[in-house]
Amino acid sequence: MRAQLESFYDAASGTISHIVFDQPGGHAAIIDPVLDFDAKSGRTARHFADRQLAFLRAQGLNLQWILETHAHADHLSASAYLKRQAGGRIGIGRRILEVQVIFSRVFNLEAGFRCDGSQFDHLFDDEETFRIGELDVKTLALPGHTPADVGYQIDDRVFVGDTLFMPDVGTARCDFPGGDAAQLYRSIRRLLALPDQTRLLMCHDYPPPGREPAWVATVAEQRAGNLHVHDGVDEAAFVAMRQARDATLAMPQLILPSIQVNIRAGNLPPAEDNGVRYLKLPLDAL
């Protein structure tokens, strides 16, 4: 059975969330869902996630999995909300434990926060296989942007998270705590060793002027034309480029609120004694 796909673009964060399903009336997974968040007011909303829930209902789909490619730094995850509304299991790469350790220290999180991945329903190992209804899925470890990045391979598609962007945008940054440009290069070469016709589906697009948002490129297209890592770019050149470029980049606008939520599988921090939930703003920490 061939996978069916519906993708949703969130213009506010440049994020693409994907719904993969086996057949109408069957089973589905949502990959990299987004929780609406207004940084100025601290207000959350669920309009984007509700569009995906509406699609599930319209197609009669059972939500089996909510899959994260990593703990994102540019949007808050709606995983916990989707699970409450439609069920399913939240999965992420096993190395999320390393990310939890790093950021539990950055944010000095509450004593009860556990750095064991238990906030998620399943931690995937490299090349672990599982199913979405009748579809076979393989997990690919793709560290570099963060230690915990993974891709999900279904048929001739791979959902690559932030490992790669569209060819005219390039590749993900590696200057977050735990990032490693050499590892990212090796992860990308792993993807680009797949058959030329394999379709790589991005989690983000930041289109240059004059181009509409897009999120699908073949291995052949990436190898021929990726701005940062086309064929002929070796590891040393890539690492030098990536380190120089990353040194010029501002931090993502939502990195501080998003990481606090995303290492909790999309759950907000626990309410304090006044019933209000708070996100921390560490000073001079990043």
Rank of each mutant, 00 (worst) to 15 (best):
G87I: 09
A86S: 14
H75K: 00
I96P: 00
H70N: 13
G91A: 15
G93M: 04
L67N: 10
A73P: 01
Y81N: 03
A73H: 10
V99A: 01
K83Y: 08
Y81M: 06
E68M: 13
A73D: 12
Q100L: 03
D74R: 12
S79L: 07
V99L: 06
A73Q: 07
I90Y: 04
G93P: 03
R95V: 02
R84V: 05
G87A: 12
V101E: 14
A78Q: 01
D74N: 14
R94F: 04
G93V: 05
A71Y: 01
Y81L: 09
D74M: 10
D74Q: 12
S79F: 01
T69G: 11
A78M: 11
S79V: 01
K83D: 03
A71E: 10
E98T: 12
E98W: 08
H72Q: 13
E68Y: 09
G93Y: 06
V99T: 15
V101A: 08
D74P: 00
L82I: 10
I96Q: 11
S79E: 02
A73S: 13
E68S: 11
Q100T: 06
I92G: 01
G87C: 12
G87P: 06
R89Y: 02
R94Y: 10
H70P: 01
H72Y: 04
R94L: 13
L97C: 11
L97D: 01
Q85K: 15
H70D: 12
Q100C: 04
L67M: 14
E98P: 02
L76H: 08
L67H: 03
K83R: 15
R94S: 12
Y81K: 05
L76A: 11
L82Q: 03
E68H: 15
E68F: 12
H75N: 13
